[in-house]
Design a protein around this nucleic acid. Structure first.
Lengths: 98, 98
DNA sequence: ATATAATATTAGCATATTTTAATGTATCGC
DNA sequence: GCGATACATTAAAATATGCTAATATTATAT
């Protein structure tokens, strides 16, 4: 395999995750989950977007391994998939604060 | 101002930067620069993309404050804008390695 | 079994991003 | 100045993303 190809693959993988983080509403949802587990309806209230949009965002973040979900009766509660995620967002804020 | 609005603005700002990081080639270029300053022609060699594409990517990363540039004669050398950036990429790799 | 509440999925349209190709600018050596 | 090298910009075509609206699923309660 060509030199640097391995590195390019890693970048493609990470870039895909950055892309998932690159939507303001999606990142806001993730930040909400950084403060604890929440149901879709809770997120809908603070986010203020239509329910299908929230579901689509959450679904995508789950596919990418950023969040996890579990059912509780009729509602579904989401949470951060890895405890190291909040620190990354905070680091970004520190570096790029206005 | 409405509650959470401040937080939403921060998310929008950071999301814009994540978007800039969300392109495989762009992230690869940034990773190359993590190992030291490089001219556009150097990056073109390792990246293998057409020159205008490289320039567009670098231009965008410069606008977003991710990299800086300086002329050296007829060539332009780029470098990482903040020393904390490499650590973020490495953290992401650790969390999301296959 | 039916109704209701909560969440998920899908398709189609609108918009944004990426790529390609052509052209423009700046610096150096002659 | 002229040519050559290195890089930047632009416009238009191709592609990907996000939103809306409608519909489907899942679980609970009566």
């Amino acid at each position: 395999m060509a030199k640097g190809s391995q590195e390019k693959k890693r970048c493609a993988r990470i870039a895909a995750i950055f892309k998932t983080l690159s939507h303001p509403q999606r990142l806001f949802l993730l930040c909400c989950l950084c403060e604890g587990e929440a149901a879709v309806s809770d997120l809908q209230k603070v986010c203020g977007a239509p329910q299908p949009v929230i579901s689509q965002h959450l679904s995508r973040m789950r596919r990418e391994g950023l969040v996890k979900a579990r059912r509780t009766g009729t509602s579904v509660r989401y949470r951060i998939a890895d405890p190291r995620i909040p620190a990354i967002v905070r680091s970004m804020e520190k570096i790029f604060e206005p």
